[in-house]
Amino acid sequence: MAVQWPASRRLQTSVVAVGLLPALALMTRAIRGTLGANPVEAITHETGEWALRLLLLTLAVTPARRLFSLRRIAPLRRSLGLLTFGYACSHFLAYLVLDHFFDWQAIFEDVLERRYVTVGFLGFLAMVPLALTSTNRMARRLGRHWKMLHRLSYVAAACGVLHFLWLVKADLREPLIYAGVLAVLMGARIWFWRFRKSP
């Protein structure tokens, strides 16, 4: 009956389940037709914002683990990272299919000419190799290079914040909050690297 999972596995499963709730809520609203006057925009914005939130949460795992000596939360990096990638893919697909409906000319022009699209696209590209090398086997195979490679997540987060900052019209408050959180998380890394030894 009750399968006794290791504690870390239970934690991961719960986090993934909670992390899928925004997607579920979005789908419910889409089916009920309560996404408002501009459903395409609502889907694009929601998936994008959740990708950014989850990416920052992913980057919070390591500082939290060190600061509070929570060794068992380390595996959450992968769960949260893959959730981030899921939302980022939905965001990218919403842009390709719902917003532009495969109008490649408009899309290429967008990616090349509009800096917020360029930086968003770069952030997405940076996440692809991270998702592909997220398995234990790939981590083992890449050895110390794996850690180097996965520092691309910092690039992805910076791109995500800039992407948001450059697209708003006048109200910078929300993107600046994300920028602030990212600054704190990167600051924590610098602080650990400068003053503490890696545990």
Binding site: A37, V40, L98, F101, A106, E109, D110, R114, Y116, L167
Partner: peptide, 13 residues
């Protein structure tokens, strides 16, 4: 920061 060539009419895909 964005193109003005096309527009989405609210209510249309």
């Amino acid at each position: 920061r964005w193109s003005q060539k096309r527009e989405r009419r609210i209510g249309e895909f």
